[in-house]
Amino acid sequence: MSRPSKIIIDLAAIQANCRLAQSIAPHSKTVAVIKADAYGHGAVEVAKSLEPQVEMFTVSCLEEALVLRENGISKPILLLEGCFDISELKIAADNQCELVVHSRLQLEQLIDTPLKTAINIWLKIDTGMHRLGISPQEVGAVYAKLAASKNVKNIVLMTHFAHSDHIGGEHTAMQISRFEDCIQPIVANANQKVELSMANSAALLAWYQTRMDWNRPGIMLYGLSPFAGPIEAASKLIPAMNFESQVIALRDVSTGESVGYGCTWEAKRPSVIATIAVGYGDGYPRTAKSGTPVLINKQRAPLAGRVSMDLITVDVTDLANVQIGDNVLLWGKELSANEVASWAGTIGYELVTRMPRRVTRHFVS
């Protein structure tokens, strides 16, 4: 019998979430974001399940792309951070990767490096995120240099939003306006259609103006809403990851006795404490506070005391018929990772992407 902590990935849920993304913008093409091992869900397995459904995948870097190629994924793959040095350019071209260009250095390296095959380029424009991207003032000149290069096959113009999870926020409206203003001369003077890409998950769900030729759904594919509050479209998402374990011990704790490291939780009444085989070594957040919910046999129970490397303790005094071996849902379809994350001072994105190899993954469809 192996250690009971495990992750169950529902590939059918991911496919359904992708269909939802596509239904929101039926005339757009889909770039499925599967960076960081598909947000912890297994990039190879997710790519295989989505390959018939999407036009392209995107990852952060060449290493992630090569893993997909080695496992038989043939759809185009976009490298969101482009290439980090000249040596990667030829490998990317040979493996049918498309590149984001976000700096003058990348532009010069691309133009100056002899390539056997021209590459599709996504020119990233910094409209207000201020991490990566060409300034709006430079876009025309950079686009012209790319268009004149024999190494460039096609150019997509893209940007990324800093605050699209704030519905109706001024910052996103400003970014949209900046993007439209700086691309207008290029689009107006081009001999052929210039393809555009703006929408991430939040923008796709809430900002209709951002639904362009290519949309880039990420977190929504995995069934997590990017919004702090409820919105109708996001309510249809199906969480794809169930993080589960089991009760491995039960004990009675007297009033005034403490539980766990640091003695941070003290029984205010005679209590029953369940010990569960999961901890921060399995990806459960150490910062989760006492009171963080888990589900035992579909009943809510609060965390009692600090999370340790291998174990957590939960107050089950008010639950009926808890037994050793009972199933525990740490997050998933019936308990959102976003809710657990709020107790841990983080976001659902981090919880699902930081899962270690010690936890076995099981894929269902």
Score class of each variant (00 low, 15 high):
Val253Asn: 07
Gly262Met: 06
Asp315His: 01
Ile119Val: 15
Val322Gly: 08
Pro239Thr: 03
Glu51Gln: 15
Glu257Ala: 14
Gln53Glu: 15
Ala188Arg: 15
Ala141Asp: 12
Gly128Phe: 14
Arg19His: 15
Leu224Gly: 06
Thr58Cys: 15
Leu78Asn: 09
Met220Asp: 04
Leu205Gly: 04
Val272Asn: 00
Gly332Thr: 04
Gln109Cys: 03
Asn200Gly: 15
Ala188Thr: 15
Glu350Cys: 04
Thr58Tyr: 04
Ile91Lys: 11
Val67Phe: 05
Asp112Arg: 08
Met309Asp: 03
Ile8Val: 15
Ile9Ser: 10
Glu70Asp: 12
Val156Phe: 10
Met129Asn: 03
Leu205Gln: 07
Lys75Cys: 08
Asp85Tyr: 00
Lys289Gly: 00
Asn338Cys: 05
Ala93Phe: 11
Val44Glu: 08
Val359Tyr: 10
Met174Glu: 08
Asn242Gly: 01
Phe227Gln: 00
Leu20Trp: 13
Trp207His: 11
Ser2Phe: 01
Ile248Glu: 01
Asn215Val: 15
Leu250Pro: 01
Asn120Cys: 12
Arg357Pro: 02
Gln137His: 13
Met355Val: 15
Ala148Leu: 11
Glu55Thr: 12
Val364Asn: 03
Thr360Ala: 12
Ala36Cys: 11
Leu110Pro: 05
Leu319Phe: 05
Leu237Ile: 09
Lys29Ala: 15
Asp326Phe: 02
Ala274Gln: 02
Arg358Pro: 02
Asn200Val: 03
Leu99Met: 09
Glu98Gly: 04
Ala147Gln: 15
Leu78Lys: 08
